[in-house]
């Protein structure tokens, strides 16, 4: 199956490089947009499987990509959006995943969305994996951001100190948006073991188990970001 991808980045150099990379992997690049407006009209027209979008674009060079991603998710639920940025900030991730209305309409906010450091593209296999995941309605969260949250010191306890090392590894991969299958492959564990670890993590976090991957990503990120403790998920 050939993945059809739209690219949006204000830097022509990166657009070209990215397009070349994706095409070399057999994907179809349907358009290379320089800003959010161009991207939206392209997506409307081409209905790609996924869009790779730079977060900082004209005119404000701040977080235009997030707005564009939300708009695409709203108009075309089948199109996944993978945001790229020179920086990954939790605030941006949360505003992307838990954006307007997402919090009240359940935890669907992270569905079909990804948020990665731009340089992740050089790890081509991981990048393509994330892109395919997003295109398929899954989630991709940058490992830097996740490990920052997981290892973030909390008042009264060091981050994740009540998790076993294994649980912590599972937690990080889970928060990155990987499936149980991917996690078990990554850690050379059986899927059942992974499921057990995940259940244990949710119990330790006092969170309700989430059946869907993108839901549990958001639940875990929200939990970590809110500073842990024994708060129930919203």
């Amino acid at each position: 199956m050939t993945l059809r991808v739209a690219i949006a980045d204000d830097s022509a150099l990166l657009r070209r490089g990215l397009a070349a990379l994706l095409e070399a992997e057999g994907m179809t690049v349907v358009c290379e947009a320089g800003d959010a407006g161009e991207l939206l009209s392209c997506v409307d027209r081409e209905r790609p499987d996924a869009a790779v979008v730079d977060i900082r674009m004209p005119p404000g060079y701040a977080s235009e990509g997030i707005e564009a991603a939300r708009e695409i998710r709203r108009r075309h639920p089948d199109t996944g959006v993978l945001l790229l940025s020179q920086y990954v900030e939790t605030e941006n991730a949360m505003s992307l995943f838990a954006g307007d209305g997402a919090a009240s309409s359940g935890l669907d906010g992270a569905k079909g969305l990804g948020y990665l450091l731009k340089e992740r593209v050089s790890d081509v296999d991981d990048f393509l994996d994330a892109l395919r995941r997003v295109a398929a309605g899954g989630t991709a969260v940058d490992p830097d951001l996740v490990s920052r949250l997981v290892s973030r010191p909390q008042e009264g306890r060091q981050g994740g100190e009540d998790l076993s090392t294994r649980e912590r590894e599972v937690l990080e991969l889970m928060a990155e948006g990987r499936t149980n299958q991917a996690i078990s492959r990554c850690l050379f564990l059986g899927e059942r073991t992974v499921e057990a670890h995940i259940r244990s993590i949710f119990v330790k976090f006092n969170l309700r188990p989430e059946p869907e991957d993108h839901r549990r990503v958001l639940a875990v990120l929200s939990y970590l970001r809110s500073g842990g403790g024994h708060r129930a998920a919203h």
Partner: peptide, 14 residues
């Protein structure tokens, strides 16, 4: 610089 280095990283990956 950052964009160019990312671009180089992509080229290297390819």
């Amino acid at each position: 610089a950052q964009q160019r280095l990312v671009a180089v990283a992509m080229e290297l990956a390819r």
